[in-house]
């Protein structure tokens, strides 16, 4: 019984959201606001049980790891948000996570994005026995990277040689975006099929 009720409720909300495709209407409005409210509530539930109980309560109260009182106090500075005069206090936890994140990030970005990618670009020809077509393709890859970087130069006007190279660069970028678009289509349609299957099979039992 409880599953049947669940299916009907789920079907109602599925249709309510789909109705937005026709136009905005009270059903969609109702579903949308309920979704926003519930999703925040869901977040509260998860954070309470997993984060607060799991990371704060159990380590400090049960396991006596009193060192975790320090981050807890820092976190409580977010309470400064509640009053205009103390609102600057929230800058402290923000600055801590920001400082750590950015400082640690710089060498990592260098390593993973610049060094690794550059190495991959330089070693493209290091495969013995490449045929003519493979060499042309690989050369295209290098030209593509090179010209597309030129497109991202902000110090130069896109005129003359730079203009031509930047143009070639943007062509490569566009082919890349076209490929991303084409690849994504299948995933999105899969999701629609999933919803239709729910409606036709689980709810209406139109198909076996």
């Amino acid at each position: 019984m409880i599953t049947i009720i669940g299916t009907w409720i789920a079907a109602f909300f599925t249709l309510a959201i789909f109705s937005f495709l026709y136009k905005d209407n009270p059903f969609y409005k109702f579903a949308e606001h309920l979704l926003v409210g519930i999703s925040v509530g869901y977040g509260i539930g998860l954070i309470w049980h997993n984060a607060f109980i799991g990371y704060v309560w159990i380590p400090i109260i049960n396991n006596h790891q009193y060192i975790y009182i320090i981050p807890t106090l820092i976190g409580l500075l977010y309470l400064g948000f509640l009053h205009k005069k103390t609102i600057w206090l929230i800058r402290i936890p923000i600055s801590i996570s920001l400082g750590i994140g950015t400082g640690f990030g710089v060498p990592l970005i260098f390593q993973t994005y610049i060094f690794t990618q550059l190495r991959e670009t330089l070693t493209v020809f290091n495969h013995p026995g490449m045929g003519f077509w493979a060499i042309v393709s690989t050369a295209l890859l290098v030209i593509g990277v090179f010209t597309a970087i030129i497109y991202f130069f902000f110090s130069w006007k896109h005129k003359g040689t730079v203009g031509v190279l930047a143009k070639i660069g943007i062509y490569f970028l566009m082919i890349g975006f076209g490929a991303s678009f084409g690849l994504t289509v299948m995933g999105r349609i899969s999701l629609l099929i999933g919803r239709f299957l729910f409606l036709f099979k689980d709810w209406l039992h139109l198909i076996g």
Partner: peptide, 19 residues
């Protein structure tokens, strides 16, 4: 664009319903 949506829905639903 709603005609586009409708066509899309039909094209996806038709093979499901007719198996």
């Amino acid at each position: 664009r709603r005609w586009v949506y409708l066509l899309m829905a039909f094209v996806v639903a038709f093979p499901i319903l007719t198996n």
